[in-house]
């Protein structure tokens, strides 16, 4: 059982290390052997157009998809090939695209499920309090059916639920998708706050400008390959980045 580590001490190896990760869906190859390292405490953004393989990367790391080749290690332990319920016990939490909250269950039950892997009741209660402080709206809606929440509230619930497992590595898949601008701000503020608290984060975003500016480092994916990596400055700033990869010309592998 992985001990929750927060704040994260310095590790001799990257917290997340991906080598030669290949994902296939039937005859379609979504990822062509990508490499990716994320150090403890880092916020790394993955950007790229639709179908570039961003979500597939997160799905493979979290165990939802079994990679066709390559390895994924978390704090030096191999997690590729494990079922998702095993991967989460290595301290990896995924907030899937589209939130995937349990609409038939209450907010309280959704949050309780987030703590499925934990056995320390006192710690869970304390964490629950912290998440409800972080997202006050969830405290107001605590007893309600989650399906009745608005999109922004559901996103907050999904993040809070993931945090209830006390992850060392948080994977966020398109957290701002389909939200009103005010709520997009809230999501990015939350991500920044989590980063300050020392959580290691991989952020997949369509909203590349803001993601790149927020992140310590960014990797650009295109048709299943990482075509560029670096800090916002190295990539020429967030806005330039966005223009570059959204436009047809520019990036060459």
């Amino acid at each position: 059982m992985a001990e929750p580590l927060l704040p994260v001490p310095l590790l001799p190896v990257p917290l997340l290390s991906v080598r030669g990760l290949t994902v296939r869906y039937g005859s379609v190859t979504a990822l062509h052997g990508i490499d990716l390292d994320v150090d403890a405490g880092e916020l790394v953004a993955l950007v790229g157009p639709n179908g570039a393989g961003k979500s597939s990367t997160l799905a493979a790391v979290s165990g939802l998809v079994r990679p066709a080749a390559g390895t994924v290690t978390v704090a030096g332990e191999v997690v590729s090939g494990l079922a998702p319920e095993r991967v989460v016990r290595h301290g990896v939490a995924l907030v899937p695209e589209g939130r995937n909250i349990f609409t038939a269950l209450t907010v309280a039950e959704n949050l309780a499920l987030g703590a499925t892997i934990r056995r320390d009741a006192a710690g869970v209660a304390a964490d629950l309090d912290r998440q409800l402080d972080r997202f006050p709206i969830l405290r107001d809606r605590y007893g309600q059916q989650a399906g009745l929440l608005s999109g922004g509230e559901q996103q907050q619930l999904a993040i809070a639920r993931a945090l209830m497992s006390r992850p060392r590595l948080l994977l966020l898949d398109e957290p701002s998708l389909g939200l009103a601008p005010r709520l997009v701000d809230l999501v990015f503020e939350t991500v920044a706050q989590l980063r300050r608290e020392g959580l290691t984060i991989v952020l997949v975003e369509q909203n590349a400008t803001r993601a790149v500016e927020l992140a310590d480092r960014t990797s650009v994916l295109r048709t299943g390959r990482i075509v560029r990596s670096g800090t916002a400055d190295e990539l020429g700033g967030g806005a330039a980045m966005a223009a570059e990869y959204l436009g047809e010309a520019g990036v060459t592998p």
Binding site: Y25, G26, S55, S56, A59, G63, L64, V65, R66, L82, A83, P84, P96, E97, G98, N100
Partner: peptide, 9 residues
Amino acid sequence: PETRREDSR
């Protein structure tokens, strides 16, 4: 023993 869906969502 473990199986999973190929498509993630």
